[in-house]
Simulated assay, not measured.
Amino acid sequence: MWWKKQAEEWVNAGPLLQWFQPGEQGLKLAEIAGKTITLAQWNGRQFAFAKKCPHAGGILANGYIDAQGCITCPLHHYKFNMENGRNVSGEGYYLKTYAVKIEAGDWWIAL
């Protein structure tokens, strides 16, 4: 049935050190289970979300994380909470986010 949400599947995205060095903050594109997503690390926390901004398709890995920990799109500077995808700059868009957990040094992402 089209209205039922598909069950999430936890996918091993590889070692944390494969994506970020200790203490490194930033954004990276990753190919996980055939899907390109953005990985982020900020203030010791890990996040995963859509590759593109829901407004105009800007590649979010080309943006930046602001001082409040929000991902900022490189095209029109729309800002999103990396944890829940909520648009914090007021435009009303939502960013697709994925749950992340780190186990035994590996990224696990719920796709």
Rank of each mutant, 00 (worst) to 15 (best):
Y93H: 14
F20I: 03
Q25P: 03
E8G: 15
G85I: 11
F20R: 07
I109G: 01
E83K: 13
W107K: 06
A13W: 09
G90R: 00
L95M: 13
R45Q: 15
Q41D: 00
Y98T: 06
T97D: 06
G92E: 06
Q18R: 11
L27G: 14
G57M: 03
L27H: 09
M82K: 05
D106R: 04
A33Q: 07
A7Y: 11
A99S: 14
A48V: 01
P22Q: 12
K51D: 10
K5P: 05
N87T: 05
L39A: 10
W108T: 01
G90Q: 02
G14K: 07
L17F: 12
Q46S: 15
C73V: 04
T97P: 02
A7N: 11
W10A: 11
G90P: 05
W3C: 07
W42A: 05
L75M: 11
Q25I: 03
G23P: 08
N12A: 09
R45F: 13
L111C: 06
Q68R: 15
K51A: 06
V11A: 01
W108L: 15
E83D: 10
G23M: 08
I109H: 02
G26Y: 07
A33H: 07
L29G: 13
G44K: 13
T72E: 06
H77C: 04
A40S: 13
A7P: 10
I71V: 15
I32T: 08
L95H: 04
F80V: 00
K101E: 14
G63S: 10
W108D: 03
L27Y: 02
G69K: 10
A50M: 05
I37H: 07
L17S: 15
M82Q: 04
L95K: 00
K96G: 02
F49S: 02
Y94T: 08
H76Y: 00
G90L: 11
K35N: 11
W42K: 04
Y64C: 05
Y64Q: 11
